[in-house]
Design a binder for these strands. Structure first.
Lengths: 322, 322
DNA sequence: CTGAAAGCGCTTACAG
DNA sequence: CTGAAAGCGCTTACAG
């Protein structure tokens, strides 16, 4: 039987809706006898009463929902951890996290016709128009929406590439290449990494790195031959999948890794650990990122200023490939 | 200014709330002059009016929201595709998909206090109690909730293992091992796979396969030595990461792949394609799965009987490791 | 200690 | 062709 309302519970328990509401919500100031409380709880359970979220939200003027907008990125363990942590932290405040996979197909504004979140958390920056619309609707906007956070994001991506270049340069490599992706969903990251590598090379007085698109699912043999012809001895890969494809290319081309070609990836993926040689890579501990996002959301909810982006926790894990 | 209501728009446009509602919702029977329509749209845009989702839902008795409950699985490209497709298909009906990462920490029933979905889609089966509570609340329940779908899920997981065993057996391997995981989040899959492999071996008159837990992030050297001592020549791995760890173990143990040890994975992951030797694996095209889920949701929404699970599309991709 | 009543913002018969 | 009014289910001052 769909549609058990608080009136039904009140009738079954022989009290008014007011009392039902007080008891079921544990309203602080309400003094209701233990006997009555028990009767109400029993009636609610027996009838399978579930309060109407819509009515609650309408009446209170705010919901217990936080919507997290996920950009069109390939999902993986990092996003999982960040979301799980956010869900846990907000659960402690009685809030629920729901994730919206925003694939650009539809206008974000349409979403607010279907749901009224207390706050919206973006993993990537929103457009200025979207931010304005949300704030006009009284929705708290958190995440990479502010220019400040944007800068932190940019710095962190460039920093990863700098770490890779520095590792290679410290080992004496002077001519580098960047193995990048042309996956459109990743372009924001990829472009920042290329820029970061270029800057890092410039800082060390090295020539700008060659930029080459590599596919994760086939050996990058041609790229390796091409690099070899141009004197490249070190490769900065966008991630471990691409690094593995470069190592495979080197194998095909008959170049030993790291002897003739050093390769460094990003992600510290399992496949890299068991590869031959094991992949040198950049690991990004997810804890600090998760903590920062959760803290930012809490700060926004409390109207407090957000904490600063944590000192960047990425670090090189030296294994066999560079 | 948070809180622009339809009254504000009505006042600004010099009409009643009724007319505003008719125009903004494009209500079929409403005959409103073009001039009035234009005035209303202009006023709404100027004021930045966003209708209250809670009020709409309360009044209409149903929302435009579909909540997809994601079990505690590691997210990856498959889940991404399925969700994206579902989002697209439901968008065509004016419905929005929001994903709830259900990490078991919290009672599902609490969620309905925060949101009133039109339907709930489960990627894994719900408990009987959860299903009962949702139906009592008038929520459509779709997905692996029914025993029928459960069977299809089981069959499909066992079928993958059978495919692996059959491939190995056809190549003459008689003593097999299963490389499995002890990741608790994956136990439902892993157990079904082990059972499927055991059955497939029995069908072919082979001895039951050895079951060995392997970690994805280190070479499975000890497991390989152990298997070798027991005459194992073929390994069925839970996924490509594990298969790669087995291949690495064989390398350490001095056994050639596939000569002395044949290995077959699942997933057709990029890292497997560029490995040496390239990994033989089982690929599961995601299209049919996505289509089936979307069709099931649509069927539930229309009160029609759900389509049957598609004939299982998993297939062996033969490369170098088995 | 408990209940009657107002009102959150919307949609939709219904009356004009 | 347009508007006044009811009511969705809840919470919360307020009155008793």
């Amino acid at each position: 039987m769909p549609g058990v309302t608080s009136s039904d519970v009140a009738r079954a328990a022989g009290v008014s809706r007011t009392t039902v509401s007080y008891v079921l919500n544990d309203t602080p100031g309400a003094s209701v006898s233990e006997a009555t409380r028990a009767r109400i709880h029993a009636a609610a359970a027996r009838l399978g009463y579930a309060p109407s979220a819509a009515a609650r939200t309408l009446r209170r003027g705010r919901s217990d929902l936080v919507v997290c907008v996920l950009p069109d990125w390939p999902t993986g363990p990092v996003v999982d951890s960040v979301l799980d942590h956010l869900t846990d932290v907000l659960a402690a405040r009685g809030l629920f996290v729901l994730v919206h996979h925003h694939r650009g197909s539809r206008d974000l504004a349409d979403l607010w016709r279907a749901v009224t979140p207390r706050a919206v958390v973006g993993l990537a920056p929103f457009s200025a128009a979207d931010v304005a619309a949300m704030e006009r609707a009284g929705i708290q906007v958190v995440g990479a929406a502010q220019p400040a956070d944007d800068d932190a994001f940019d710095r962190s991506q460039r920093g990863i590439a700098a770490l890779q270049v520095d590792h290679l340069a410290a080992a004496g490599h002077e001519r580098l290449a960047v193995a990048t992706t042309d996956d459109a969903r990743l372009s924001r990251f990829a472009d920042l990494r290329v820029a970061g590598a270029r800057d890092a090379c410039a800082r060390r007085g090295l020539r700008p790195p060659l930029r080459t698109v590599v596919r994760p699912d086939e050996a990058a043999t041609r790229a390796v031959r091409d690099w070899h012809g141009q004197g490249v001895t070190g490769v900065v890969a966008y991630n471990d999948d691409l690094a593995l494809a470069v190592v495979a290319g080197a194998r095909e081309a008959g170049l030993t890794v790291p002897g003739r070609l050093a390769v460094i990836g990003v992600d510290d993926a399992p496949a890299g650990r068991v590869a031959s040689p094991p992949l040198t890579t950049v690991a990004q501990p997810v804890g600090p990122q998760s903590d920062h996002l959760a803290a930012s959301v809490l700060a926004a909810l409390d109207g407090v200023v957000a904490p600063p982006w944590p000192h960047d926790p990425a670090r090189v894990v030296v294994r066999g490939s560079a």
